[in-house]
Simulated scan of single mutants.
Amino acid sequence: MRYLVLAMRTPQFEPSVIDLHKEYLAQLKEDGVLELAGPFTDKCGGAYVIKVDNLEAAKTVAFDDPIHTSGSSEVTVHEWDATAFSKND
């Protein structure tokens, strides 16, 4: 299953955590977990799509992200049926 992770900046956002967050995402990509990621253009946060076996695994991935553990962003995880309109999956 695919999961959409939304990371919305909190008032306690620390710009210094961005590098750690990017390193975390790079590792997820290397591990074959991360499919897509990017910030919102208005700088309020960002989102990424991961592919894991279940919701608990998705929450573990999202809540271990330094952007979350530092308190810089509030992270939510949504199971996403992204294949509903895809011709390739």
Rank of each mutant, 00 (worst) to 15 (best):
D31P: 00
K87F: 09
S73K: 09
L20Y: 12
H21N: 04
A47W: 08
G46P: 03
A58I: 05
S70R: 05
L4D: 05
D19A: 12
K43P: 01
K43A: 15
V61E: 09
K43I: 06
T10I: 12
G32H: 02
P39R: 08
A62S: 09
E35R: 11
Q27R: 11
Y3S: 01
K29G: 01
E35P: 02
A57E: 15
H21C: 02
A58W: 03
G71F: 06
F63S: 00
S73Q: 14
A37P: 00
H68I: 04
I67E: 04
D42T: 07
P66Q: 10
S72M: 02
A26M: 04
A82N: 13
L36F: 10
L6N: 06
F40E: 02
S72T: 02
L4P: 01
P15K: 04
K87N: 10
P11Q: 07
F13M: 06
C44D: 04
K29S: 11
D81P: 06
E35K: 15
L20Q: 15
V75T: 15
Q12E: 15
E23W: 01
T41W: 09
L55Y: 15
V17T: 12
K51S: 09
A82W: 03
D42N: 12
T69D: 08
T69N: 08
G38V: 07
G32K: 06
R2Q: 09
L6G: 11
F13P: 03
A58H: 09
M1C: 07
R2D: 14
H78K: 09
A58E: 02
D81S: 08
G32V: 07
F85T: 13
G71I: 02
S73T: 08
F85M: 12
A57M: 11
F85C: 07
F40H: 07
W80I: 05
C44Y: 04
I50R: 00
A84K: 06
D42Y: 06
T60S: 10
V77Q: 05
V75R: 12
L28N: 07
Y24K: 04
M8V: 14
D89M: 07
K87M: 11
I18M: 15
K51L: 04
F63Q: 06
D53H: 07
L36V: 10
E56T: 14
Y24Q: 03
V52G: 13
F40A: 10
S72I: 01
V17A: 06
K59D: 03
H78V: 13
S70G: 04
C44N: 06
D64K: 12
T41Y: 04
G32Q: 04
A47V: 05
E79V: 06
Q12K: 13
D53M: 08
L6Q: 15
G45Y: 10
H78P: 00
E14V: 03
E74Q: 12
E56M: 11
S16F: 02
L28Y: 05
I50W: 00
L4C: 10
